[in-house]
């Protein structure tokens, strides 16, 4: 797995997490991700991921008027998306614990 592919998989999981916190739209997702320290990705890279998540039936979208004018595309998690998020969380915790253990332990 190349590092960009790994980042893709992680980004998928993180977007599921962000959308799971409540309906949201692209720009807001980026602001939230930045709040958590995700500054390594370019803003646009969430859109191909959102397209894939929607294709896989993990998220739903609907158009909603924004206070500033034009309609925005909002996303919500589907039931399958919630399941996938739980699985991602378990996989990630397992993986990050292993990596942590490996890196902290000085043999």
């Amino acid at each position: 797995m190349s590092s960009s592919q790994m980042l893709k998989g992680i980004l998928e999981g993180c977007l599921l997490a962000i959308i799971g916190k409540g309906e949201t739209y692209g720009y807001e997702m980026i602001e939230k991700l930045e709040l958590y320290g995700f500054t390594m990705i370019s803003e646009g890279s969430i859109y191909p991921v959102l397209m894939r998540l929607q294709k896989e039936g993990l998220v739903d979208s609907f158009m909603k008027e924004s206070p500033s004018g034009p309609k925005r595309k909002y996303y919500t998690l589907t039931a399958a998306g919630k399941d996938e998020y739980q699985e991602f969380k378990a996989r990630w915790q397992h993986m990050s614990q292993s990596v942590d253990r490996l890196l902290k332990e000085e043999l």
């Binding site: 646009g44 034009p70 595309k73």
Partner: peptide, 12 residues
Amino acid sequence: IADELRSHLEEA
């Protein structure tokens, strides 16, 4: 996708 990116670019 073009509309979605346009509104993102506007905000950015």
